[in-house]
Amino acid sequence: MTLTATSFDWVRQVVHRESAIVLAPGKEYLVEARLLPIARQMGLADVGQLVDNVRTRPSPENTRRIVEALTTNETSWFRDGDPFTALTTTVLPALLAARGAGERLQIWSAACSSGQEAYTIAMLLEDAMPNAAGRVSITATDLSREMVERTRAGRFSQLEVNRGLPASMLVRHFTRAGSEWEVNASLRRMVTATECNLAAPLPRMGPFDVVYLRNVLIYFDLPTKQAILRRVRSLMRPDGWLFLGAAETTLGVDDSWERVVLGRSSAYRPLKGA
């Protein structure tokens, strides 16, 4: 056991602050089991070192990974389904009408984790807009190399494909690969995965027509939120669309966005001249 009481308390406080989830005393083994892979990936020997590392050099990205490792087992496919419905019913038809026939559309799934969001978008395109699917490319980025590699591989565990993926889409878009399921090659071809740290200057990408930046901003302080939104906007087309998480907004953070209600969800568009 490498986890001291002080380290465990620190983890408890962080998880409670970021997610409002309470880790009861006695859950040290859970913290060990879930955080050890993160520690190993960062080249650290154990969870104690991971905690020391993040405590002495605070990093929202690493905090997010710790919180996510302890609070979510799997990411859902159609997590908060409405932002996906809006994509094929409103957003893409509008963009396709506005662009020339040969012009490509680019979608960015930022902080993509293991790729569920990017592949959800790809499946929707193939099913609902098969004629347009060939004109769309999807860029998936994550801070973690491991997540980028998982996204590229497009392989998901049984538990992962059980989470909010309609069975009809599972059988249409996946094949079995050992104990896992693999996304079909046609979808993998639509998705390009690459490493990217949202809190640092962004690589040359885009320009993007649609950006999914969901459940990311909540982990950052106000100045960093503002910087991220500014950088994201610089990679977007002027008539692009930004989707945030259900509990996130640009209001009070960055006033250069216009909020647009789309059915039961909402999106943000760059304000002209802002």
Binding site: N73, S157, Q158, L159, G178, S179
Partner: peptide, 11 residues
């Protein structure tokens, strides 16, 4: 593979 199957069943 058996290990990962067992882990998922346990979860």
């Amino acid at each position: 593979t058996i290990q990962s199957i067992a882990e998922q069943a346990w979860i």
